[in-house]
């Protein structure tokens, strides 16, 4: 079988000017369960859907604390995420050791983006197969960033990555203008609604399959949050209160319609992965 070779390593461009290995890595991100991130004036939050390998297995961890003021949600290869989050923790601690200051969030994200970029250019390497949503706060307030295997990082008002994240994105695009003035509780409710869009038909958000990560001051239902409002992860019982405040699911045809309109608004994702005009690649069987 003929199979051209422009996708066999990451140092050769395809005649269309693309790096297929990098794009495949982005596909790995889409294999992971969804993570949603939102930002208001006071808070940045992450919401993630945890998967479990089966009834007998525990749910896979989706969020990592990096420092008091930073945390991440991951989609893709967990093992790659562990390596990168470890690196981020080292960077954060290095900043505290050298300057006694919390590392500015954008620099932390750039530092892993730079690492990912090396893997898209140097021979014999493979790109990371994981994407992050990073939330953190510094003197400029709360932030939300996306990191992807291509070595790009962007700041967002709201974003989602992972499986079926397009549906969540559609929800976020519809509502993001109201996020900036939201209370933490409302922001979480929006996040849960967005995350719910990524579920398969017969699934529900439960306290065991949902994780919430927060930076910003304590919310009405939180206790024991230090005054700086550093990163914390909510799981299990404490998130029941947020789940029960969700609006009941809409009629089944509505999200499907939304999904179609949303796809057009995604130049980055559409251009790199969604296209079927990809002629120089035939994936092996």
């Amino acid at each position: 079988m003929f199979r051209n070779t422009y996708d066999s390593d990451n140092v050769v461009f395809s005649p269309q000017g693309r790096l297929h290995q990098v794009e495949y890595a982005s596909e790995a991100v889409k294999q992971g369960s969804a993570v949603v991130g939102l930002r208001s004036k006071t808070h940045s939050i992450l919401l993630a859907l945890k998967r479990s390998l089966g009834e007998l297995a525990a749910y896979q961890q989706k969020m990592y604390r990096i420092d008091d003021h930073v945390g991440i949600g991951i989609a893709g290869l967990t093992s790659d995420a562990r390596v990168l989050s470890n690196f981020m923790r080292q960077q954060a601690m290095g900043s505290r050791m050298q300057f006694n200051r919390p590392i500015p969030v954008n620099r932390l994200v750039s530092s892993i983006a730079d690492k990912a970029q090396v893997n898209t250019q140097e021979y014999g390497r493979r790109p990371y197969g994981v994407g992050f949503l990073v939330i953190g706060q510094d003197k400029n307030g709360p932030h939300l960033y996306e990191f992807s295997p291509s070595g790009n990082s962007y700041e967002y008002y709201a974003m989602s990555i992972g499986a079926r994240s397009q549906s969540a994105k559609t929800y976020l695009e519809k509502h993001y203008e109201s996020f900036i003035d939201c209370s933490l509780e409302d922001l979480i409710r929006h996040g849960l609604h967005a995350l719910r869009e990524t579920l398969q038909q017969d699934k529900e958000l439960t306290i065991s399959n949902t994780t919430i990560g927060i930076v910003g001051p304590a919310g009405a239902h939180e206790k024991d949050v230090p005054p700086e409002g550093g990163f914390r992860i909510l799981e299990n019982e404490p998130i029941q209160v947020y789940l029960s405040r969700m609006q009941p699911k809409r009629a089944p045809e509505e999200p499907a319609a939304a999904e179609q309109t949303g796809a057009a608004n995604e130049p980055e994702e559409g251009a790199t992965h969604g296209s079927t005009a990809d002629e120089d690649v035939q994936m092996g069987e």
């Binding site: 300057f99 006694n100 200051r101 500015p104 620099r107 510094d138 400029n140």
Partner: peptide, 11 residues
């Protein structure tokens, strides 16, 4: 770095 952060005396 151009991100608005700067080093103060404590740093």
């Amino acid at each position: 770095a151009g991100d608005g952060n700067s080093l103060g005396p404590a740093e």
